[in-house]
Design a binder for these strands. Structure first.
Lengths: 205, 205
DNA sequence: TAGATTGTTAATCGATTAACAATC
DNA sequence: TAGATTGTTAATCGATTAACAATC
């Protein structure tokens, strides 16, 4: 089995997100047509993406959500849990910690860190906010592979450096600023405004 | 001039995001190589995208950031301000309200709404949180085209309906749940965990 | 001039789409 | 059976990439 192309991996991830939500809404089965409405991916493309890995659907019915989720997880190798460190216990950090967005996909927030003495020691769900100086130990003890930066732009580069130093190789950057990291580290930037920009373009034209 | 393809519009938006940040970091000029490192788009692709609209670069030097920002804004028709209603004044809503992420691209949050009597009347920056029942009037008075949903999943469909009812045609859904809307309404869902899923795939393989 | 980077071409590869037989 | 939806083909279009002359 070859490595997936970037496009296929990205689309499969999106299917997974919609399937997870559809399941929560009580659906058991979904058609490529319905998946298309939620993902904005062409239904033929969806069937094509999936049929490359097996015959997961039932003609005249659609796809069983549970079994499709299991299949895609296997393809994306995200069947196991992966541990996350969340850096920043401000509004954004708290919002992330309390949402299901990561948990739904097997990402477990196992540590929340901050620099502020006011935050350190407070409870967030079942976790206690730890000081950033404990980062190295937490990463090592908890087998953390992903760091989520929910901090102000001014602080982001320094904290990114500390994450990398501690051994984290995937950084999810919510701060908005640009990060410079070693070549073997992957930075993903979340930028909702960027999506709005082109949504607006198609609205205006 | 034809309508842009979805791919080109999406990439131009991402260039704009990086250019805006690079400018904040004090850069005046940027090469397609540097833009590529931050956007993960091939440098040749970037030059190709841009050269379709004019010769914006200087050989041996790169692109002037200010002038490139202006050019892309013109292409995407986002030179003007656009008004946003933010629904939800919880952790996530407050995080969005206090970040520059929308303001950087000409989106101005002109109204924050909530259902909770505890929230209504409190101040967020220079805005006062209003009750959701005022939505119709606020949308009309402020020429609001975009609604941002920063609410719990259980409440999202009902509030989406109210946004549509009030005349909003672009919804940015942070709630994680799936929304059903009229065909002329565009829903964008933000899903950071989805990006992580495929980042992890390439990390694991 | 020497070095760097754009703008552009040409060749390849993957994405997109319509269409439809297979089949639940 | 009739209706619906998958799986797959074939044709087209856009994205990707290497290469390099133009030129700052």
């Amino acid at each position: 089995m070859d490595r997936l192309t970037l496009g296929v991996a990205a689309r499969l991830s999106r299917y997974l997100q919609v399937l997870t939500q559809a399941k929560k809404m009580g659906k058991d089965t979904i058609s490529s047509q319905e998946l298309s409405e939620y993902t904005h991916v062409n239904p033929t493309q969806i069937r094509r993406d999936l049929s490359g890995f097996g015959k997961f659907g039932k003609r005249g019915v659609g796809y069983n959500i549970d079994s499709l989720v299991a299949q895609i997880r296997k393809i994306l190798r995200t069947s196991d849990q992966h541990n996350i460190a969340l850096v920043g216990a401000g509004n954004l950090g708290l919002a992330i910690a309390s949402s299901d967005i990561f948990a739904d996909h097997g990402f477990r927030i196992v540590a929340i860190l901050d620099v502020s003495p006011k935050k350190v020691g407070t409870k967030v769900g079942s976790l206690v906010v730890r000081h950033i100086s404990e980062l190295n130990k937490l990463v090592e003890d908890n087998d953390i592979v992903v760091g989520v930066l929910a901090v102000p732009p001014e602080a982001s580069q320094e904290l990114a450096d500390q994450l990398v130093e501690a051994g984290v190789r995937i950084i999810f950057n919510y701060s908005g600023s640009l990060l410079t990291v070693a070549p073997d580290v992957t930075v993903h930037a979340s930028s909702p405004a960027v999506d709005l920009l082109y949504a607006l373009y198609f609205y205006l034209t």
